Computed example of a mutant assay.
Amino acid sequence: MIITAIDLIPVSPVANSAFTAKITVKNQGTVTVNGGYLDVWANQPTVQKCGAFGEQWIEISSLAAGATKTLTVNLRLSGAGAKTLRAFADSWCQTPESNEANNQLTKTYMVK
């Protein structure tokens, strides 16, 4: 499972207001798998380990070989400035993969 894109709506959220993250995941494998959970943090610059709890999470569910799926989570963040959104696919590391190091992606953004 790899994360291929993170899109924020709005691109530069306002402090203390809700915003949306649309996160696209892809099954790089050759068989259909249960993608587990996608955990998301509004501001988490540090790489997370298996079993980490995000501020928001959503079930990825079944994903065919080579298929992509875009998932949406709603977040809220206090304080203005530069932030690092982190998304972690298969955050409980339940789906065996040849590369367990590519399940996280970050997006740096500004909060007004």
Rank of each mutant, 00 (worst) to 15 (best):
M1C: 05
I2W: 12
I2E: 15
I3S: 04
I3K: 05
L8V: 08
L8D: 01
P10T: 00
V11K: 08
S12K: 15
V14G: 07
V14S: 11
V14E: 09
V14Y: 03
N16D: 08
A18F: 04
T20R: 15
A21F: 01
K22M: 05
T24C: 07
V25E: 01
N27L: 06
Q28N: 13
G29Y: 05
T30F: 04
V31N: 01
V33W: 01
N34G: 02
N34R: 07
G35V: 09
G36R: 08
Y37C: 06
D39W: 08
D39V: 08
V40M: 10
W41S: 12
W41N: 10
A42G: 09
A42L: 04
Q44E: 12
P45I: 07
P45F: 10
P45R: 11
T46L: 09
T46Y: 09
V47N: 06
V47M: 08
Q48W: 12
K49I: 11
K49N: 13
A52C: 12
A52E: 06
G54T: 10
G54M: 05
Q56T: 12
W57T: 08
I58P: 02
S61G: 00
S61V: 00
S62M: 04
A64S: 15
A64K: 15
A65I: 00
G66W: 13
A67L: 06
T68N: 15
K69N: 14
K69W: 09
K69A: 14
T70S: 15
L71M: 10
T72N: 11
T72S: 14
T72W: 12
V73H: 05
L75D: 01
L77G: 02
S78K: 11
S78R: 08
G79T: 04
A80M: 03
G81A: 07
G81V: 05
K83P: 01
K83Q: 08
K83H: 13
T84L: 08
L85K: 13
A87E: 03
A87P: 02
D90L: 10
S91P: 04
W92Q: 13
Q94G: 07
P96G: 03
P96D: 07
S98P: 14
N99D: 15
A101S: 15
N102C: 03
Q104A: 11
L105K: 15
T106M: 07
T108W: 00
M110R: 05
M110A: 02
K112Y: 00
K112C: 00
